[in-house]
């Protein structure tokens, strides 16, 4: 665990969109260990949009790109308008993202806790 990052991330509220239960479970544990609080996880695009419509509060979002066969970008656009920094979690790497999102932090699956804390710090500092 990267302890210095953990301090910086203490209390950070993270919105998670991830359709694979086991992957979501692991991410949840990692985020809890980092001292973050979790919003979600939303496991479908529709569910994520529903949560956004209900005045969702979050400091940063970690979005799986392919959510149960749907692409997550409509959710990403809404988050961007709200000014919430976005991290994309994907097995594809940057190649799986449309060019418009290439500036965003990418969390390549499978990821370690250091990867998660690193990308969170980067995304939060960038905003």
């Amino acid at each position: 665990m990267s302890t210095d990052a953990a301090g910086e991330l203490e209390g950070l509220s993270v919105f998670v969109v991830e359709d694979e239960a086991l992957v979501a479970l692991n991410l949840e544990d990692m985020l809890l260990d980092l001292g973050c609080t979790i919003v979600g996880p939303a496991m479908r695009v529709a569910k994520a949009q529903e949560m956004l419509a209900q005045a969702l509060q979050a400091d940063v979002a970690i979005l799986d790109v392919n959510v149960a066969g749907e692409l997550v970008f409509p959710v990403a656009e809404e988050l961007a308008t709200k000014g919430i920094p976005i991290i994309f979690a994907t097995g594809y790497g940057q190649a799986g993202l449309p060019e418009a999102w290439h500036g965003n932090t990418i969390l390549q699956k499978p990821y370690t806790m250091d990867d998660v804390s690193g990308s969170l710090s980067k995304a939060v500092r960038r905003s």
């Binding site: 694979e20 086991l22 992957v23 479970l25 692991n26 544990d29 392919n66 994907t90 097995g91 594809y92 799986g96 390549q108 699956k109 499978p110 990821y111």
Partner: peptide
Amino acid sequence: LNHRVKNTLATVQSIAAQ
């Protein structure tokens, strides 16, 4: 295929961690 492999690896990683 890449997507599935990466997702499966992430699933296995989660099972291991849990």
